[in-house]
């Protein structure tokens, strides 16, 4: 069984859970392929935190755009993140938002590998 810690060392603790679940049935080659695809797609919570902080300069919602939430992004951009209250909400939730995105990417990568017959 492939080692999640070795292949994706920058994973957060809650990220480990679903990565372990997804990578359990893979052999070493499949796990390596999965890890390289996943690591190129995943976002770092620190980067999302920085983009959220940019919101305090008046351009809110960049973090939401980066996480693929276009509706929320446009709303934040046009209302200055609900008078900056939304920016504070996102500061508090930045880890959860990032892990939501990363989890979606992990499942998409696994589905893609399944579709290509690699899994």
């Amino acid at each position: 069984m492939a080692n999640v810690l070795q292949l994706i060392p920058d994973a957060e603790p809650d990220e480990m859970m679903y990565l372990h679940m997804l990578m359990e049935p893979m052999n070493d080659m499949q796990a390596g392929m999965f890890a390289s695809m996943y690591r190129s797609r995943r976002k770092e919570p620190t980067m999302i935190l920085l983009l959220t902080l940019v919101g305090f300069l008046g351009i809110a919602g960049i973090n939401r755009f980066m996480l693929g939430q276009m509706g929320m992004g446009i709303l934040y951009f046009l209302t200055a993140g609900f008078c900056f209250i939304g920016v504070i909400v996102d500061l508090v939730n930045h880890k959860k938002l990032t892990s939501e995105y990363n989890q979606k990417q992990a499942f998409e990568v696994a589905n893609m590998m399944r579709a290509m017959g690699q899994l």
Partner: peptide
């Protein structure tokens, strides 16, 4: 008012009135 710019004394905020 929940508007943070207004609390800080800035008049303009695109989210005010929402």
């Amino acid at each position: 008012s929940f508007c943070i710019p207004r609390m800080l004394g800035v008049d303009f905020c695109p989210g005010c009135g929402l």
